[in-house]
Write a protein that binds this DNA or RNA. Sequence first.
DNA 1: GCCGTTTTCGGCCCGACTGTTTTCAGTCG
Length: 574
Amino acid sequence: MRNADIAEAFEELASLYELDGAVVYRVVAYRNAAKAIREAGVSVEELARQGRVEELAGVGKTIAEKIDALLETGSIPSADKLKARIPPGLIEVTRIPGLGPKRARQLHQELGITSIADLREAAEQGRLKEVPGFGKKAEENVLAALAAGADGRPKPRLVLSEALPVGEEMVAALRDQPAAVRVQLAGSARRMTDTIKDLDIVAAASDAAALVEAFCGMSAVDEVYVSGEAGAKAVTHSGLPVDLRIVPAEAFGNLLQHLTGSGKHNEALRTEAVRRGLHVSEYGIADDETGETVAFATEEQVYERLGMQFIPPELRENRGELEAAREHRLPGLIELGDIRGDLHMHTVLSDGRNTLEEMVDAAAEHGYEYIAITEHSATHGFGSGVPPDELRLRVERIRSLEGPGITVLAGTETNVLPDGSLDYADDVLEELDWVVASLHTSFRMPEKEQTDRMLRAMEHRLVDVIGHPTGRMIGRRDSYELDVDRVIAKAVETGTFLEINANPNRRDLNDVYARSAAEAGAMLVIDSDAHRADTLRRNMRYGVATARRAWLAAEQVANTRVWPELARMRKRER
DNA sequence: GCCGTTTTCGGCCCGACTGTTTTCAGTCG
């Protein structure tokens, strides 16, 4: 069972307990455990087999037993019992804005509501407002939410690359306003998460009303819901909600820290502060001893007051960063400027949109020292594969490029065939400087076979790196079944690099796996996988962001090296 | 339900908003 599936079961159990009226701390405990399981970075099933799941923070004796039961029987007995009493459709009811577990439970008890359909019917018949604690307004709000398309399913999230440029443009435009003192993007966009649901912008202004007015008048803004001296809530033409919050410059650091989150990071930070008599909020830090609240203009000061190193936003996920910051042992994270070359890209020869020369020019202009041209191999399909003889011609053409200004390496992205063999004969691969091996077919193989397939490819002497190792497409396709623990172990054993594919729809390996890989001693490579010149320029920041979220330093990423040094690190040279 | 250089029991972040209530519970971020 995958960590995501186990986590899902505990999320559901938490919601069921919540609807059953359990004390909130029990519910929170299950949600925390679900997060710990999802982000474990190693197989929780394997941990359970070794009797080590309680090593996960937030997993104690009771939850460990439930994990065992889930793995053994496919379900959790307490969840089965709860489901007999609480219709699972109520969980969807709790996702209607304004309705939470308490009110959904009440609707179930008073009106027998078990689903969104029941809720709609009751609201339309005017029965909702008769329930104690509900009223005319509550019923109207439910009807309005349903009419607006709320259906109880979690709201779809946007891939970061669809929202981040919008947010950055808005921030830049606000900074140009004479009333702006400080403007900063916050929220999950600042933490560079894979997906986001809205944009948060924090500002300090000499004239708050003027800045809010400028915000509401921006061309990207479609509709403004709320606006005042404290900020505004709006939605863009693409349907992206944007919150602007304005705060006095003296407390800018507190609000920025608060709104950057994550919620879990802030919660843990505040819990720890309370033990020392400090109370952290978006307005400042209150000290029990003096009874005074002190505001801070910068985030650096906020963390310093709490006795911590500044924590880069990408690390603020409550994954150990608070403890590390207290002990002043946060890693120096890799930066975009550390990347010296890009080792995975395509041209018109396979399925790219730009020519070899155009990609070389774009890379040179971008300031790279080297790139590898890595077309798809012969069996790629869609008529875009490159047969061996064509690849040989391509190698010759690369070798004869005149004055490209950068080092251009001849490479391939070769398919790994279902049996784990490669798509080109060894004598063809021998002519190349760089070999990416990726899975593009037979995604439905069972985990054991899929993993064995990949491990066999990794044992090949000429495979330098595994491309987009898990095959996920964010929001569109799950990873194929793969035992990533074994892949990481094989990478360490063989000296095969693992890619962080920087395509913002992939970001694969993800942050959690990349961190595990680096901790195990594997070497990573961050590649754009560009299919056109503009994505060559644009993708890399998302890959670097994933690496930062994985706590990686530049040394742990191979393409921060100059090419001669990186060339010597390939396993064929060892 | 989890956790511990305050604790193996008694805590468990903070504040805004809403609607309904007659002083606050529930929801949200």
